[in-house]
Amino acid sequence: MTTTFAPLPTTASRSAAVASTTTESIVFAPTPQQAYLVRIGDTCLIHAQRLAEWSGHAPILEEDIALTNLALDLVGQARALLTHVGAQTGFDEDQLAFLRNERDFRNFTLAELPGRKAGRDFADAIVRNFLIAAWMNVLWEKLESSSDAEIAAIAGKAVKESRYHVAHAADWVVRLGDGTDESTRRTRQAVARLWPYAAELFETDAVDTAAAESGLGPLRVALQAGWQAIVEPVFAEAGLAIPAASAFRSTGSKGVHSEHMGYLLAEMQTLQRSFPGGVW
């Protein structure tokens, strides 16, 4: 028995139908310096997006408020950076956040990894916070002397916020690492799962060298010693071993993300995509 299907729409008719109901992606072609800033801004934004999943679900009300403050700081930092890059490229912060293709996002993969909604626990959130906050802290300190005056100004404000983020995360890493047997077990699992993604934070590529050469900001590898100086004592106090280095390298900073990024962006971008011409 054969079933008759209606003819498939042709490319022309399909494009016409689609164009009126979704917003297409912008064409984003940053210079290496712009890409350098976008890496930082995107990492802040995507990390904030995962942190925001904890709103209303933290282990205790006080901590709910604290985590949301972290998310708000990060959204603020993302907005400052994306607005700055946007001004140079003819886009606003929202076009960059909501209308870029996945391949044009340059956050570290560490930030996009599944969070609370996918069943990850508070130890995962805390260890991730700590590794990223320590990196941001060392970076912001160096960016205070950026050749880009606007970036230096943004860094001046952000470094104060990031000091607090490091302190908050470090205290929790110690509490959980050196708390109960269960918390120790969960923290070690989180470290084992997340540590391989930290290597990406210290790679070098053409974007880094361009930024370093122009004085915009440091090579990622220049942040490593400072980062270790923050992370290692806290891990020691928490009774956590530093995992051995592996050959694994995540590549989000190059725009090639994990399988999780597609879902994250689908959720984050849905309204702008489905309401073409919308004003919010």
């Binding site: 934004l45 997006q49 925001a52 999943e53 709103s55 209303g56 009300l61 006080e62 709910d64 408020i65 949301t68 403050n69 998310a71 708000l72 959204v75 603020g76 993302a78 907005r79 994306l82 912060e93 929202d94 956040a97 909501f98 959720e267 984050m268 849905t270 309204l271 702008q272 309401f275 919308g278 919010w280």
Partner: peptide
Amino acid sequence: WITRAPTLKRKAILLAKVQDEAGHGL
């Protein structure tokens, strides 16, 4: 709706509002 807020400004506003509610509960 925090993760689906349509602009960064609205996302920040909603985060702050929901946070206030936690504070009020507290």
